Amino acid sequence: MGKSSKDKRDLYYRRAKEEGWRARSAFKLLQLNQEFNLFDGITRVVDLCAAPGSWSQVLSRELQGKNAKIVAVDLQPMTPIDGVTTIQADITHPNTLQTILDIFAGEQADFVCSDGAPDVTGLHDLDEYIQAQLILSALQLTTCLLKPGGTFVAKIFRGRDIDLLYSQLSYLFERVICAKPRASRGTSLEAFIVCLGYKPRPGWNPKLDLQTSTEEFFEGADIGKAGNLEHFELPDDEERKIAKFVACGDINDVDSDATYTLELNRLALEPVQMPTAPPYKKALEMKRRGDLIRR
């Protein structure tokens, strides 16, 4: 979590620190669960793109005492969380899939989630495309380890072509809903796709392969492909689908777009978890050695 002036006046940011969450995004998953009861009856969970670990924290606390196995995967290192097995790995690599299945003793997952997002550029079309590719990468792994009837939740950026993704997901899940938690700023394109009731495609055997693109991976599933978005392919007499939009969270809760006055005698709280490998770490080390010289 950052330390900008706006962050300090954001009540979700302050509440996350007070309650011990590593990031304010923890409230997004909590509010999604309030709406969809995502945690009911689940014992094997995978959190993709998990760092810094706020969603894994939520899963650990909510599933405590239920003999659940929780696996968190990210390319970045994560400080350990009680009850969570962390894996520093690429979600597209076959070895990652095998490692997760080994932890689950060969059993399939009940619930897979991803709060991952690329570093945004401000170019909305590019950001939406990269995020869609990240979702498809997460979906590749999900189709290989999620049990029939399982649930998949992922962050999306809503754009003009998002119904293409809704249509593809609707082939793989019984219900597809676009949800906007109250903790997610209304000014942001961010939302979450909630996919309920996984239904494997008949005759399709998904298999991860580093040499296979996401489009090639889903070819055998017959869920339609992007190609040129103006000529999106779907079976005859079937229309592109629009996911139902649902707002999550108590409407009387704080406004994520608002900033609030700081008390004069407020206590400044340090981050719950400092970054383990921040991108600026190398630059700081170079500065200490005197390797950074202004020219």
Results as ranks from 00 to 15, higher is better:
L269C: 14
T86S: 15
F218N: 00
A138Y: 02
C248N: 00
I193C: 13
Q211M: 08
L196G: 01
L48Q: 05
A154P: 06
I242N: 11
P271S: 11
M1N: 13
L141I: 03
K69Y: 08
W204L: 08
E238F: 04
P77T: 02
E128A: 15
D222M: 09
E285D: 12
I193G: 05
Q64A: 13
F39V: 07
A258P: 01
Y13Q: 12
D250V: 03
R175E: 13
D47P: 09
D90K: 07
A23R: 05
D74R: 11
Q31V: 05
A26Y: 10
V84E: 09
A243S: 08
S188D: 04
Q88R: 14
V45S: 04
A283T: 11
V176Y: 03
T92C: 15
R61F: 04
G41Y: 09
L164V: 11
N252C: 04
G106K: 10
P206M: 07
K207M: 13
K180L: 10
A191R: 06
F111H: 08
Q140N: 14
G2C: 03
F157M: 00
F218C: 02
T99F: 11
R182N: 09
G106F: 10
D74L: 12
F218G: 02
L38P: 02
G224Q: 04
R14K: 14
P271F: 13
A117H: 07
I103W: 13
G249H: 06
L29G: 05
I130M: 06
T261G: 14
E216G: 07
N228H: 09
D161A: 10
P279L: 09
K66L: 12
R22G: 09
G220N: 01
R294M: 10
R240F: 11
E215N: 09
A105R: 15
S60A: 14
G290D: 00
L165V: 11
M274N: 10
I103T: 15
T151V: 13
D10E: 09
C49N: 09
L30V: 02
D10I: 08
F111K: 02
A268W: 13
D119H: 03
L169K: 06
A183T: 01
I177Y: 01
V58W: 07
L262S: 11
P181I: 00
L267Q: 15
L210C: 13
L29D: 03
D125I: 00
R158N: 07
I242A: 07
K155P: 01
I42E: 04
S5Y: 09
K244P: 01
W204C: 03
V153E: 02
K3I: 14
I91F: 00
E215G: 00
E239G: 11
K69C: 14
I81S: 04
V194M: 06
Q108M: 12
Q140P: 03
D255H: 02
F192P: 03
R61C: 03
E19I: 12
G106W: 14
D291S: 11
F36A: 05
F232M: 05
K3D: 05
S25Y: 02
A154L: 06
T121K: 01
V46C: 04
D102W: 12
Y260H: 05
C178N: 12
R15G: 13
N33A: 05
V246S: 06
V254C: 07
N33M: 11
T142H: 07
A283S: 12
A89Y: 03
R294L: 14
K69V: 15
P52S: 14
L292V: 08
P275V: 09
S213A: 12
S137N: 14
